[in-house]
Design a protein around this nucleic acid. Structure first.
Length: 600
DNA sequence: ACTAGGAGCGCG
DNA sequence: AAAGCGCGCTCCTAGT
């Protein structure tokens, strides 16, 4: 007697729960049929690394089999190891969880994500190559449902919606439902299985599109990059929990003190901008800046400029609570199982292809206050080092624009901002001149104007205009190249850029000026991603703990820190379009924050 | 109870 | 002529 197959709202899609021996036999028969790819998906109690796997689904375009990992881990292992090709949507999540279903030690988990990863396609990567924008940016989005509706079937069911209703029926919520719903609830199983079927159909629909666009090399490249970062997730980064606990107490004290101070001025919630604005106004302060929606602006810059005790207290309270709620507490939560953070690393997150890290957001820890970074530590007997590209975006600008003077400066190994200052202001330039030169370069890279430059560099508007003019004269091809770039956008219904690696970046109409930044940022990202693969090829990737846009954070044996740092920097270095790309390393110490700590 | 958008803030 | 770019996350507020 086999368990009944479940019908689905999707035509020709059938879901088979695997509950008894007969089901398992049927599944094994099905598994023996040849198919190009096997789709895999998991249902878990939550989105965190150590959350429990409740169901594992494998399927093709018409059938999905839903398995209980606590009972049929051997079947799951057989299906995964026996398949030539796998496909998953956001594969790192599923592979990490599947590795923990099948493997029993951290070393085995690593080996499993490597072995399975080598034969896995990720539809989220393919989708990003076709259109990198998420829904809020006017794109299709990258959720399985969004993609299925766009590329497969406009009537594709929304499992999340159905399950939300089902949870409610059962007295559960979206936060408790995933962990508490009965494993064999028919709706839960039906939509779990359906996701594997939809993933297969999505893959079948978009791989040909990606290849037709000539992205074959990028497909391979991105999957390799993803494998490199998934290994980083599995290895994780060690946390000093005792130190972090202490820091949490310290920050909480700071927050409470500053909040009490703010309360004496009538502000009982420092996070309410409306309340802060009102209290400041009551003190006779006129707030001049406004937000896009017209409210009074009370951000850090505004408050600092006020030099007012209330503003001071609000700043202190917000800084402390931000550190606590955004970083220290999340780091402690993430590390509560094995003392390590295993963050999610999205290798293609931004429109430009830049990576993002979440859970916790380790790319965004404060650099000025070393205390938060100090929660993260090297392996026993090791030190953390950081190896970063020097001025990589400006080097990319030089390579893309082919400006002879800019290229020449990098080729000669000059300090680029000093070189620019010398050209603009003459050989007698001052430190302030260098600052202006640096700000102009940033303005070019970000597509800013004179007004922003004036504000950022703290100079007069006329001075800013003059500096930009002189920069353009110094590096004439930078200007001609950017003009050509923005005016030559592929026009059609959707204007887009093509980067040197062939990446396609949509540019919103009306914001064409962003093209320069997009292509520079995206190219720099690809240089960085390429460096990660170089490290892997050189057998140095096992040291790497995190990618941070233009820098890798590595844990290396303390006695060899200098040697390994130099080796990693060398492997990351190279050239782009004739411009040297240079990486430098710095030894932080046992704690990441040691690099930022005041020395005495 | 849950969602969406704005504001703010940390990083590169 | 003018336009600073890209993220993740938390808190607040208003709306359903």
């Amino acid at each position: 007697m086999t368990t009944a197959t479940l019908d689905t709202p999707l035509a020709g899609a059938y879901v088979h729960p695997v509950r008894d021996h007969a089901d398992a036999d049927e599944f094994l028969d099905w598994l023996r049929c040849p198919r190009r790819v096997l789709a895999v998906d998991t249902e878990t109690t939550g989105l965190n690394y150590f959350d429990e796997v409740r169901l594992v689904q494998v399927g093709d375009a018409s059938d999905a089999w839903v398995l209980d990992p606590s009972r049929h881990d051997w079947l799951i292992e057989q299906a995964l190891r026996g398949s030539r090709r796998l496909v998953a949507h956001n594969a790192p999540f599923d592979l990490c969880h599947l590795a923990r279903v099948i493997g029993s030690s951290a070393a085995e988990h690593l080996e499993l994500v490597e072995d399975l990863g080598r034969k896995t396609f990720d539809t989220a990567l393919l989708s990003h190559l076709l259109d990198p924008r998420d829904r809020s940016q006017g794109g299709i989005g990258h959720a399985l449902k969004d993609l299925a509706r766009h590329y497969v079937d406009s009537a594709a069911p929304d499992g999340q919606e159905v399950l939300k209703d089902r949870f409610r029926e059962l007295g559960l919520t979206m936060s408790t439902g995933w962990a508490e719903i009965d494993r064999w609830d028919p709706d839960y199983v039906r939509y779990a299985g359906l996701d594997a079927i939809i993933t297969t159909r999505l893959f079948d629909a978009i791989l040909p599109k990606v290849l037709a666009r000539g992205h074959e090399d990028l497909v391979e490249f991105e999957h390799q990059v993803q494998r490199a970062t998934t290994a980083m997730t599995v290895r994780g980064m060690a946390v000093d929990r005792h130190y972090a606990d202490q820091l949490a107490l310290e920050l909480d004290e700071e927050r409470r003190g500053a909040e009490a101070e703010a309360a004496t001025y009538g502000v009982d919630n420092v996070n309410s901008t409306a309340q802060v604005a009102e209290a400041l106004t009551a003190r006779g302060i006129t707030l001049t800046e406004v937000t896009p929606s017209g409210q009074a602006k009370v951000d850090r810059a505004v408050l600092e400029a006020l030099d007012d005790p209330l503003a001071q207290a609000v700043l202190e309270a917000k800084t402390a609570s931000k550190a606590l709620t955004s970083w220290v507490t999340p780091i402690l939560d993430a590390a509560n199982r094995d003392g390590r953070c295993h963050p999610r690393i999205r290798t293609l997150a931004a429109r430009t292809g830049r990576m993002s890290i979440s859970g916790p957001p380790l790319q965004q820890l404060p650099a000025r206050d070393h205390r938060v970074r100090s929660c993260l530590i090297a392996e026993p007997g090791e030190v953390l080092i950081s190896v970063d590209f020097s001025q990589v975006e400006l080097r990319v600008l030089a390579a893309l624009s082919c400006d002879p003077r800019l290229m020449g400066a990098f080729d000669a190994g000059l300090d680029i901002h000093s070189a620019t200052a010398a050209t603009i202001f003459g050989p007698e330039f001052t430190a302030a001149h260098r600052q202006v030169a640096k700000a102009v370069a940033f303005g070019i890279v970000y597509g800013g104007g004179a007004a922003t430059l004036a504000r950022q560099a703290g100079v007069d508007r006329l001075v800013a205009e003059e500096a930009i003019l002189k920069f353009n004269r110094a590096y004439p091809k930078v200007r001609s190249w950017s003009k050509g770039l923005t005016s030559s956008l592929a026009w059609g219904s959707e204007p887009f850029l093509k980067t040197p690696t062939g990446r396609r970046i949509p540019v919103d109409t009306g914001t064409e000026y962003r093209s320069v930044n997009y292509i520079i940022q995206s190219t720099a990202r690809d240089v960085f991603a390429g460096a990660l693969l170089q490290l892997r090829a050189a057998g140095l990737d096992h040291y790497v703990r995190l990618p941070v846009h233009d820098e890798v954070v590595c844990s290396v044996p303390a006695p060899w820190a200098e040697e390994i740092g130099a080796e990693i920097a060398l492997v990351m270095s190279g050239t782009l379009g004739g411009v040297p790309i240079v990486a430098d390393f710095e030894v932080c110490g046992a704690r990441w924050g040691d690099k930022y700590a005041p020395k005495d």
